[in-house]
Design a protein around this nucleic acid. Structure first.
Lengths: 212, 212
DNA sequence: CTCACTCCATACCAATTGGTATGTAACTTA
DNA sequence: TAAGTTACATACCAATTGGTATGGAGTGAG
């Protein structure tokens, strides 16, 4: 039945459906945090449920199994993050180099001590699960691919505007850029030293400037 | 009792001590491989023992607990690897840039498909355990520190020989170099694509050349 | 010969794991 | 009103986990 406008006024079905989506979202966010803290394999469904005050009934109603939860975290939460933080700004910018530096600076400033300790959730999951579960690997590699393509495309369009040197290998640079960024965050994670992150960031910024 | 030379001829004590060290080494290597495959937390003592055909009695005779095994893997196996592969060659070289490129090339060529899939054991452990266990973190960070210092020192000595530009920030470069290298291996791991590793390697090689 | 010590095997343990079966309240549909 | 579906909660399960207690074979010391 199509919902007419007057159904918005107290449509019980809509209410419960919205509530259901909300609990699913709650489960998903709690799962993301648990996985971010402990890794996927060491993450415990008990802990997730403890934090949400929900039960296994709820969890296994919305997800088929633990693997399904992990996949959903990548497909929904991590994907959203990459798109909002990187891909959308890059798709709109006129000056890709400037935008890349701005995103780096912004995310660097937003980072708390805990963020540094926990590291990049995408990289964490990638390093842990890529060699163990192909479902994870394909999803994660897809995200990295989107990310790199967005950077390369932005740099190519920067060439057209003569804001990027013509001889730059944009595809290769995108690979190195993402790799270096993840590497830097990883270094900061193990050293738990903000200075290391900044030194790394500076190095990357310098590298970016060489593209002009 | 000091062992005189004639004790070498059938010293039963020495035999058993050597055998004991050997089983410890067997356990340690099997643990390293299991951890490299599954990560530390997901690694199973049962699997380790299954591969060695030893038992828990042996394992808990040589190690206090699972954590102790992980620490020993870092302190002995990973440390040895970094020192042999990177620190020693860098300490002896006259041309640090050339040596860095040679090590990269050599390790790149030696890498099997499985090595790419499993990634760098040091980085794997670092990303998994740094935020969870400070014992791991300190040990791993110590290794990274040694590694970076070796690179920076080599580059500094390269300055004296005018093989490295005077204005190079060697300490910062060492950080970026190690971060990028680990990032590249991580990218190759999730993409399972040798080409990605080579593109990354090329980028790093180019970066190295800018130091001359 | 006896005692103690090293090195390792066997058997067992509580705790935790992901997963399932069943129950039930709320709501929609017929 | 009766039947069916959704959205959970509760109770339970086998399997696996890291860890321990005990035992025994081999060896050196006294």
């Amino acid at each position: 039945m199509k919902s007419a406008w007057w159904h918005a006024w107290r449509c019980n079905r809509c209410d419960t459906e919205r509530a259901s989506e909300e609990t699913r979202r709650t489960l998903l966010l709690a799962s993301f945090e648990e996985i971010h803290r402990c890794g996927f394999q060491a993450s415990s469904l008990q802990n997730i449920l403890k934090n949400t005050k929900l039960t296994k009934g709820a969890l296994y109603h919305h997800f088929r199994n633990k693997q399904d939860i992990g996949y959903a975290v990548v497909d929904e939460i991590l994907k959203d993050f990459i798109h909002e933080q990187w891909i959308k700004p890059l798709a709109q910018t006129n000056d890709p180099i400037q935008t890349l530096k701005e995103i780096m600076q912004y995310t660097g400033e937003q980072m708390t001590q805990e963020d540094i300790e926990l590291g990049c959730p995408l990289n964490n999951l990638s390093q842990e699960m890529s060699s163990i579960d192909d479902g994870f690997r394909h999803r994660i590699e897809g995200l990295y691919q989107d990310w790199r393509v967005a950077i390369a495309d932005a740099l190519e369009s920067g060439k057209a505007r003569q804001l990027v040197r013509e001889d730059v290998n944009t595809k290769q640079f995108a690979i190195v850029f993402v790799a270096t960024l993840e590497g830097c965050i990883g270094m900061a994670k193990s050293s738990q030293d903000m200075e290391i992150l900044q030194e790394c960031g500076m190095g990357l910024m310098d590298l970016l400037e060489t593209l002009r």
